[in-house]
Amino acid sequence: MSGRDRTDGATRASSRPPTDHAGLEVPAPTVAFSAEQLGEVRRLQGLYPDRRAALLPVLHLAQETFGYISLEVERYVAGLFDLTPAHVHEVVTFYTMFFRAPKGRHVVAVCHNLSCHLAGAPAIVAHLQGRLGIHVGETTADGRVTLQSVECLCACEHAPMMQVDDRYEFGLTPEKVDRILEGLR
């Protein structure tokens, strides 16, 4: 579970909210990158005239590693950049892709902007909420899916569409949504 592990497994395991055997939340382990990841941090910092520019890439790496950007992660990353935690907090709270609380194993983000709206996005959102039994912004009790409704993902030619983790899913119908959900474990 610890971010110190260097395997990919650590990445996946820690992207879930930490729970103990009884399913209760336990405090997250102290965050730290592996030696290899620290090398990557330094490489990223070296790519730019000012190493602060690597903050977004490193926060992406941190989110992959620790599952979400907790305050503790912010503090840790601030230390890697000689920034104050407040400066990192400003950045983390500004962008929509950084999760500040544990998220599901999969993130389903439905576009609700104009073209998708015209193609029935509200109904797709309603369908997803019904199927998953959660509202937009929530995560299923089993930690499987976090549902979001987002601004234009710039694939409006395939409206209505959504992003599932790294993938774009196009031309949604309730049936297609069901098939996609089935594939999410």
Binding site: L71, E74, R75, L83, T84, P85, A86, H87, V88, H89, E90, T93, F94
Partner: peptide
């Protein structure tokens, strides 16, 4: 140069504050 304060979030939810716990 102590950098304790920040403006967090964005739009009309932007809010002045400290890093929590500081």
């Amino acid at each position: 140069r102590t950098g304790e304060l920040g403006i967090f979030d964005r739009g009309d939810h932007s809010e002045i504050g400290l890093f929590p716990g500081t």
